[in-house]
Structure formats: structure tokens, C-alpha cells
Amino acid sequence: MSVTLDHPLVADYLRRLEFASVSLPVQRRSELIEEIRDHLREALAAADGETQVRMVLDRLGTPEEIVAAEAPSREPVAGEQVSAFSPSGSTGSSGPAGAPASAPARPPSPWGPLEIMAVVGLTVGFVVVPVIGPLFGAVCACLSTAWTRREKTVAVVFAALPAVLVVVGFLAVFMVSTGPTETTGAGGAPGVERVLPESAPSAPLASSSAVSTSGE
């Protein structure tokens, strides 16, 4: 008497496999599941009784183990198997150079007073003390030791963006009101005019996104 895939232990195993393999590419996932099903069909054909079913599943390994063995195909282990087959392995050139240079993990950045002042300056400061507030916030952000250069750049850009938009907006209004007749700013004026309608709504938008970004 043979055991089928409907056996509770087997069905449970296959459910676990489906769950464990969600991270795989869709096509590969269904292929893997199909192969394991084929395997089980063959292995269970000779099985009889729960003990033997368990043995077949034990030998197969856990679903997690099997899925973990898929990993190297997605991220080639630096210079390992891939370069062994270098005549055909196209990814062989990626080499081991990049992988080991895992930068020492940055400690979880604590929020010190500088960071808090930076966020307050960039958000509340923008409304309360229009120019000095964001400026102060940006300076605080740059002085921070906990933030990366990228985070600091974002802070500075958000501090400067509203100011730039306001200046551009004023310039545009000034140009439009003074001289629709004299088109002295041949190249510049049309461009500035186009900025004008956008600049009004986007200034609050910029400041609100500054809140969300620096709040993270």
C-alpha cells in the first residue's frame, strides 16, 4: 500500500513548503514545489505507515532548509561555484571583491539633542521662524554624528528648498507684474513663469514632506 500526497503529514509538509518558498521567484517556486511533489510521490510509493512517511520527510529535509539552498542562485556566493564554471557563468566576474567589504555595522543611531533640534528647526522652525529656523535645523543636522551624509543632504535640501521656491516665486511675480511687455529675460522668463503656479502649492508640500522625512 502506498501513501499519497494527501496524507496529513505530507499535506502539512507541502503547506509549509509553500509558505517557506514565498520569497522565491514565482516560476522557480512552482517548479521547486512540483519537483518536491514528484519526489514525494516516488518516495512514498514504497512507504507504508506513518513511521515510513516520517522517514521520507526527514530525509527530504525541512522546507526551510530546501528553500535556503535556493539562495546561492539569487545571490551568487562570491567567486564560489559561479566562478568554477567560469566558461559559462556570466556572473563570475562579480568576484569576491565586493562581498567581504561589509562595512562595520553602524550602531543604531541614537537621537541626541542635535538631531531633535534639527528636526524641530526644519519643521516647526519653518513656520515659526521662517528663515532662521530651517537654517538652524540644517546646521544642527550637519553637526550630527548619528546621521549619515545622505540624511544630512536631505535635511539641507529640505531646508533650502522652500527658500529657493519662495525666492523664485517672488522673482516670477516681480517679472510678470513689471514687464509682460519687455521680454528681457529671453531664456529665463518663460521658465520662471512656468515655475510660478507650481511654487505656491509646492512650498507647503515641501515643508510637509520635510516633516515626514526627518521624522523617520
Binding site: 519526489h39 530525509r59 530546501i66 546561492p72 542562485s73
Partner: peptide, 26 residues
Amino acid sequence: LSEQGGLLTSEGTIYPLLARLRKDGV
């Protein structure tokens, strides 16, 4: 492989291996 003993601990991992070999074109 199982008959050789000691070569395979989790039989199921042979399928990912085969897929990788196919991807490598071998």
C-alpha cells in the same frame, strides 16, 4: 547519491542545486 551515504543530508536540497547547475549552463 543517498546510496553513497554521507553525501546527502537533506535530499530536498538537491533540487535547488540542480536548478543552479542548469542556470550555470552545466
